[in-house]
Simulated assay, not measured.
Amino acid sequence: MRTINFARNEATFEELKAAGADIVLPDRPESVAIAKELIGDAPVRLGVDGVGGAATLNLASLLTENSALVAYSAVSGDPMHVPYFILTSKRATVHGFFAGARDYVTETAPAIREAGALIASGDLVVPVAGVYTLDKIQDALDHLFRGGKILLDLRASTAGN
């Protein structure tokens, strides 16, 4: 499987490439044409959206016939932009994913365990963009919404505690 990645923060481009991303482009409408040129006739059967809003349109525009768009978050806080003609002409479907759903224990949790083993072995690299203590939780959230993986250091002592 090859990936096309639209990133809102260009500072994360190298991290994404180091993690195995094949194509990384800025999350802008003009990047769709660039992606199409780079992939040629290759089918795009899956779009994974964690941003919502206008960013969803970029993903949906790349989908080919009988494809799926999976939304797992909406960091932008805006509704997904998916024109009906993409759904109807390409016979694309939209699916929502929520880790708290009933199938979490039977389907999602095992996939997370499998990914965890790949990360632990070094076969899957997930670069950390920042580590924050709890007293810096607002900074951590701000960083998360700008893009990048963040970690909370619960062991670090905080001032006054």
Results as ranks from 00 to 15, higher is better:
Asn161Thr: 09
Ala33Ser: 08
Val94Tyr: 01
Ala109Gln: 07
Thr158Trp: 06
Ile4Ala: 10
Gly20Tyr: 14
Leu69Asn: 00
Gly47Phe: 03
Arg102Ser: 12
Leu62Ile: 10
Ala35Ile: 13
Ala115Ser: 03
Val75Arg: 05
Phe6Ile: 02
Gly100Phe: 13
Phe97His: 08
Asn66Gln: 06
Gln138Pro: 04
Thr12Pro: 02
Ile23Gln: 10
Pro83Ser: 14
Ile112Lys: 07
Thr12His: 05
Arg8Thr: 01
Asp49Glu: 08
Gly122Asp: 03
Ala101Asn: 15
Val70Gln: 03
Ser61Pro: 15
Val32Gly: 01
Ile137Trp: 14
Ile119Lys: 13
Leu152Arg: 06
Ala68Met: 00
Pro43Tyr: 03
Ser61Asn: 15
Ala120Thr: 07
Gly147Cys: 14
Gly130Pro: 03
Ala129Trp: 07
Pro43Lys: 03
Leu134Asp: 05
Ala115His: 02
Asp103Lys: 10
Val48Trp: 15
Phe145Arg: 02
Ala101Ile: 13
Ala60Val: 03
Glu114Pro: 01
Ala19Ser: 13
Arg8His: 01
Ala109Ile: 10
Thr108Trp: 11
Asp78Pro: 07
His143Asn: 11
Ile23Ser: 13
Phe6Thr: 01
Asn161Asp: 13
Asp27Met: 09
Thr93Pro: 09
Ser73Gly: 07
Phe145His: 11
Val44Thr: 04
Thr3Arg: 02
Pro26Met: 15
Leu118Pro: 10
Arg8Lys: 06
Asp49Cys: 00
Val94Ile: 02
Gly20Gln: 10
Arg146Tyr: 11
Ile150His: 15
Ala60Phe: 04
Arg102Ala: 11
Ala11Pro: 11
Asp135Gly: 03
Leu38Ile: 01
His95Leu: 15
Pro43Met: 01
Thr93Glu: 07
Leu152Gly: 11
Ala42Val: 05
Ala68Arg: 00
Asp41Ile: 05
Gly77Trp: 09
Lys90Asp: 00
His81Asn: 05
Val24Tyr: 04
Ala19Ile: 09
Asp153Gly: 02
Ala111Glu: 05
Glu14Gln: 04
Arg2Lys: 10
Arg146Pro: 03
Glu10Val: 14
Asp22Arg: 13
Asp142Val: 12
Ala109Lys: 06
Val75Ala: 10
Gly160Trp: 07
Val48Ile: 09
Leu59Gly: 00
Leu63Ala: 08
Leu25Lys: 12
Glu30Gly: 10
Arg155Pro: 00
Leu152Ser: 10
Asn9Ala: 02
Ala115Gly: 06
Ala109Asn: 12
Glu37Met: 14
Asp78Trp: 07
Asp103Phe: 13
Val32Gln: 02
Glu15Asp: 11
Gly96Ser: 13
Gly52Tyr: 06
Thr3Trp: 04
Glu37Asp: 15
Asp41Gln: 04
Thr12Ile: 10
Ala99Met: 06
Lys36Thr: 12
Ala11Ile: 09
Thr56Tyr: 00
